[in-house]
Amino acid sequence: MSEQAKNNQKMVIKLLVIVVGMFGFGFALVPLYDVFCDLTGINGKTANSAAVYTPIEIDESRTISVEFITRTNTGMPWEFRAETTRVKVHPGELSTVNFYVRNPANKQIVAQAIPSVSPGVAALYLNKTECFCFNQQPLLAGEEASMPMQFYVDPQLPDDISFFTVQYTLFDVTGKGDKLAVKENPYLREQPESGI
């Protein structure tokens, strides 16, 4: 019987390893999911670090129109709009769109912009060389800023995509997270005379 008990114990340990492994796998699904999204474009997530623009041949035979949608989430009082809501670009061509923000509240608010691209596949071919969404953006009461987003569309963009939509949603992340690199918003506009 003790032989039996030993065997049982060995087997239990092996099975517990599987259990612990699968518990870990549940959490591993989080980064795996991001990898999966990067590969397939699920949800139109874009990269959250800057791409490097190497001058490439501009494909003038195609024109892609890119549409911008701006939204603020619940509890986020900022004014937020794209200064250009639609641009037409050739694949490979670098272009810049500015986004206007203003904090009407009487306190500092830190914002995080979350991009989403539709159709999701297009996200894989949208290369942002500079974006306000890479960092958290602080604004003091009454401050306003014009935040740039510079991008180019990869010429590999599938032929059946002639336009896509990029949405930015601003979230209030004041006091949360550690991504806030700067005290002052780098894209600040000059303070309006009136102040607060």
Binding site: L15, I18, V19, V20, G21, M22, F23, F25, G26, F27, L29, V30
Partner: peptide
């Protein structure tokens, strides 16, 4: 069961 119940545990933990 031993393959997926831990994943559920992970999900509720998150």
């Amino acid at each position: 069961l031993i393959a997926v119940m831990p994943v559920l545990a992970g999900a509720v933990t998150m």
